[in-house]
Computed example of a mutant assay.
Amino acid sequence: MNIFLKIEETLQKQLPFVAYRKPNTSVLKGRFQKNNNLITSINYSESGFIFAPFDSSEKAIIIPEEQSDFYQEEITLNNNFIDDATYTADSSSEENHIQLVKKGVKAIKNKLFKKVVLSRKEKVEVSNFNLIQTFQKLLYNYPTAFVYVWYHPKVGLWLGATPEILVSIQNNQFTTMSLAGTQIYNGTTNVIWQPKEIEEQQFVTDYIIDRLSEICSEITTSETETIKAGNLLHIRTVIHGNLTTDCSTLINTLHPTPAVCGLPLMASKQFITNNENYSRNFYTGFLGELNLNTNKTISSELFVNLRCMEVENNTISIYVGGGITKDSDPTKEWEETTAKTITMKKVL
């Protein structure tokens, strides 16, 4: 059966499912749960598809390999979508976000932490929302991203196109990345980065290497590079190593990273909890394949849940944020979040 038809059929039956395509591939995969049980992960020891929230103290949801049907197919998409949906955006949050960023900068200057990632949720009212068409638009527009649609009748419906790997593990070898800094793409990746963005990305790299050195060996890093993700550019460093402990310890060590939380971790996370005034839910959590056994190789490939939206009937909640340092300009930070909403609004 065609996966898009399977999505429609499973949604009608109100059963959990996920459909996804990995970056730079043309294979669409789907995992469709046979019952509507809400199954949570115990220490990331299961096999299947994991969907984890930002708050690591909350349970991650798993669609287990043994309780689901798996489909995959090659897809070819053309840009022949009918744009019959219209939307109206909530524009009331600009002043709130600017004040939040000012508060964050002040806390950094008062040495409460070095960096904090502050986010917001923008609600968009949509007429004639079409799930399959929206998902296909995401797949078409963001070929270099991890693109997904995830549904559970007891949780909700989420879609996204994320550029960031949390970690990829094959047996005892892993790859992760440090991704930070944002510019709007204007036709070239040959751009100049400001000290604020360079510093922010280095914070993330140093933190990850420091944390991994306690549980990993032979850690190597790539040269820093500029990458394109949708209409945006970011600074990236790729990090490799050998795992000397289990998968669960590695995930718990990496999540949440400073790229979605801040530095030091606990102080910045507490500031987020106290000041963002909304729940991130699964935004800046992670998702992906967990402990799959393929050709005698146990592999996991997990992505940070960025550039995502939650769908409730015709109300779309778009989640966006940005890294704040002592040199952050609150107005520019607002503009950065606005640029990031374009990724999602482009497909509505």
Rank of each mutant, 00 (worst) to 15 (best):
Y319V: 02
F174R: 01
E46S: 14
L290M: 08
H97V: 03
Y319D: 07
E301R: 13
F4A: 03
L302I: 11
N171A: 10
T205V: 06
G104N: 02
I342P: 11
S119I: 00
C247R: 05
V101T: 07
I219R: 12
P195L: 00
T337A: 05
E289K: 02
I192V: 13
V149F: 00
Q99L: 13
G288R: 01
K102H: 10
S57E: 14
N275Q: 03
N78L: 07
M309T: 06
I165C: 11
G48L: 03
N281A: 11
C216E: 09
T188V: 04
T343M: 05
F174T: 04
T162R: 05
I324R: 00
K123D: 12
N130H: 10
T273W: 00
M344P: 12
T294V: 14
R280C: 07
H240Y: 14
P64Y: 04
K154F: 10
P53Y: 01
S26K: 12
F70P: 10
N274R: 00
S279V: 00
K106P: 01
A145L: 02
I62P: 09
L159A: 07
I215G: 13
V149Q: 04
N281L: 08
Q201M: 05
N277S: 11
K121P: 03
Y151M: 02
S92N: 11
E333I: 03
N96P: 02
E199D: 13
P64W: 02
V18N: 09
E276I: 01
F135C: 07
N231D: 06
V320P: 04
V260Q: 06
A19M: 04
H255D: 08
V27P: 13
K103L: 13
S57C: 02
Q33W: 10
R31Q: 15
A52D: 09
T175I: 12
K34E: 15
P264C: 04
L118Q: 10
D69A: 10
I62M: 11
N37I: 01
F174L: 03
V126P: 13
K29E: 15
Q270T: 13
S92A: 06
P163V: 01
Y87G: 12
L118G: 11
E200W: 00
N35D: 15
T224K: 15
K269H: 08
H152V: 03
T294N: 12
S299T: 12
T10A: 14
T86C: 04
V18A: 15
Y142N: 04
D327M: 10
E199V: 06
A339V: 09
T144L: 08
I227K: 06
E333L: 05
K106T: 09
N35M: 05
M309L: 13
V124H: 10
K34G: 13
P195D: 10
M309I: 02
A229Y: 00
E312P: 06
V27K: 15
V167N: 10
Q72L: 03
F146Q: 01
V320H: 03
F32L: 05
F81Y: 02
S41V: 00
I318Y: 05
N43P: 07
N43G: 12
N186S: 14
N35A: 14
K102M: 07
S93L: 08
A267F: 04
P53S: 02
T40D: 01
T297A: 11
E276W: 04
E336W: 07
N128M: 00
